[in-house]
Amino acid sequence: MTPIRHNGSDGDPVLDAVRDCVLAVGVRRTTLADVARRAGVSRMTLYRRWPDLRTLVGDLMTREWIDVATRAIPQPVPGTSTRARIVDGLVAGVQAFRAHPLFCKIVDVDPELLLPYVLDRRGASQEALLALLAEPLHEGHADGSVRPGHVERQARALLLTVQSFTLSLRTMTDEDDPELDSTAFLGELRTLLERTLKP
């Protein structure tokens, strides 16, 4: 089987291997033996770093989701406000997540993996995403483009908003109706974010 290449930033061969396995057969049908074989390491090597497959998949999701979010953030451009960068980055991030092959596979085959992070607790990915949002929010407060407020609370509210669009957008869209397709709803997301952040 030809390995599936990824855009993750650290190039860890074990995380690459588990990604290939999950994309091929889903999480429930992936075993640590499969991952070890693909990565060219022993199972004991895996057990020294990860106690079980779920922990390994959790680290994979963290790597992939942070990579997606980081790539979605626009670079500063003279004449563009920090608020515009935040809004553009969040909308682009939702689009990128929804198109990401690993995200699509998990949603289609193993959606229960995502439930703890929706219903019970924040995961490492969410903590990292909140940290990514904090800096531009501080910058937006400083340049006056983002309404003053508690940075951590604002970051959490933004993440709640984009998380709902990422996970649930397809339940609300009718792709054969241009007024109710995903593009139209991403426009609504942009409006929500802009109005939320505007002073």
Rank of each mutant, 00 (worst) to 15 (best):
L193C: 08
V94H: 04
L60T: 03
S42W: 02
D67K: 01
D34M: 07
T82I: 10
I66T: 14
P74Q: 07
H150N: 12
T70M: 08
D67E: 07
Q163E: 15
D16A: 12
D20T: 15
R38N: 00
V146P: 01
R49F: 07
H138V: 14
H100R: 04
R85A: 11
G40V: 04
H138A: 15
L180A: 10
E152G: 14
S145T: 13
D12Y: 04
L158S: 00
P178D: 04
S125I: 00
F185C: 00
G144Q: 03
L114H: 12
P116V: 12
D110E: 15
R63G: 11
R37K: 05
F165Q: 01
R190I: 03
T31I: 11
G144D: 03
L189H: 07
V91I: 06
D110G: 14
E194F: 06
L129Q: 10
A157L: 14
D20L: 00
T183H: 07
E175W: 05
R54D: 15
R43P: 02
A131I: 04
L197P: 03
G144Y: 07
H150F: 08
F165H: 09
D181V: 08
R85Q: 12
A92D: 11
Q75L: 03
L169S: 05
Q154N: 00
R121K: 13
D177H: 04
A72Y: 08
D20A: 14
R156A: 14
V41R: 07
T2S: 11
T173Q: 09
P148G: 00
D108L: 12
L197Y: 01
L186N: 03
V162W: 02
T31C: 08
T161W: 02
R83F: 07
P136A: 06
Q95K: 15
R5K: 15
A124T: 14
R195Y: 13
A134G: 10
H150R: 13
G89P: 01
V18H: 04
E135D: 14
L119E: 11
R49S: 15
D10W: 14
